[in-house]
Computed example of a mutant assay.
Amino acid sequence: MSTTIHQEVEFSATADRIYAALTDGKQFGELTGAPTEISPEAGGTFSCFGGMILGRNIELVPNQRIVQAWRVANWPEGVYSIAKFELKEQGSKTLLVFSQIGFPEEEGKHLEAGWHENYWNPLEKYAG
């Protein structure tokens, strides 16, 4: 479990809009079309995509950074990765620098594609 995912995505929206969409359960549910519960506090839990993605918010710095202990429900019990979202506002746009470590190595390709398909593409449509 030593593989890393690193992705950089630019959104046509402000950092506060992107941050809110990723940390507010109602907004995230609207952008994905799936049942979502997200605690807005560090230490709080989240459940996305009808319980397929689970975890806990480790650090929340409004409009700047989100760090989560993140897992897919069918991973072995107790296996969590660390997902880090860094938001860098650039005028009316925001650069999201994403990294994920500590996931089962065989999941890497699926996860890399999944972030684009399930997070970045819907987020661009929602926030843009």
Rank of each mutant, 00 (worst) to 15 (best):
I58C: 02
E89W: 01
K84E: 14
L31E: 06
Y119G: 00
T94F: 06
N118Y: 15
A42T: 10
T14D: 09
F46R: 07
V97R: 14
T36Y: 05
P62L: 04
E89I: 00
T23M: 08
I18Q: 02
W115N: 08
G43I: 07
N118E: 04
L87E: 00
Q68F: 00
E105C: 06
F46T: 12
G29N: 10
K26C: 07
H116L: 06
Q100R: 01
D16S: 14
I53D: 00
G108Y: 08
L22N: 05
W115I: 01
V79T: 15
F85D: 13
R17S: 11
G44S: 13
W120F: 11
A69Y: 00
G114V: 10
R56P: 06
N57R: 03
E105N: 14
G51K: 08
F28N: 04
D24W: 05
T4A: 02
G102I: 09
E89L: 04
Q27C: 01
P62E: 05
T32Y: 09
T14I: 04
Q27W: 04
L22Y: 07
A21G: 11
S2T: 11
T23A: 08
A20Q: 13
G108H: 15
T3P: 00
W75P: 00
E86M: 11
Q7D: 14
S92M: 00
W75F: 03
T94W: 06
G44V: 07
G78Y: 12
F28S: 03
W115G: 07
F49A: 12
L22M: 14
G25C: 08
M52I: 01
A34R: 15
K93W: 04
I58H: 06
F98L: 12
T32F: 12
L111Y: 08
G29V: 10
E107S: 12
E30C: 02
I66N: 02
G55V: 03
A42D: 04
F103K: 02
Q7M: 09
D16E: 15
V9H: 13
D24I: 03
I53H: 02
H6F: 13
Y119M: 03
G55S: 06
D24L: 06
G108P: 03
R17F: 01
P104I: 12
E10Y: 12
Q27T: 05
L54H: 09
L60A: 02
P122I: 02
L22Q: 11
Y80T: 07
K84L: 13
G44A: 08
I66P: 00
G25A: 13
G29Q: 12
L111I: 13
G108A: 14
A21D: 11
H116G: 15
P35F: 10
E105R: 12
Y80S: 07
P122D: 05
N63G: 02
N74I: 10
V61Y: 09
P122E: 02
P122F: 03
A69L: 08
E37P: 01
N63L: 00
E41Y: 09
G51N: 15
W70K: 05
T14Q: 15
K109V: 03
P35A: 15
F85P: 08
P62K: 14
E59S: 02
F49M: 14
S81C: 09
H116A: 11
G44Y: 05
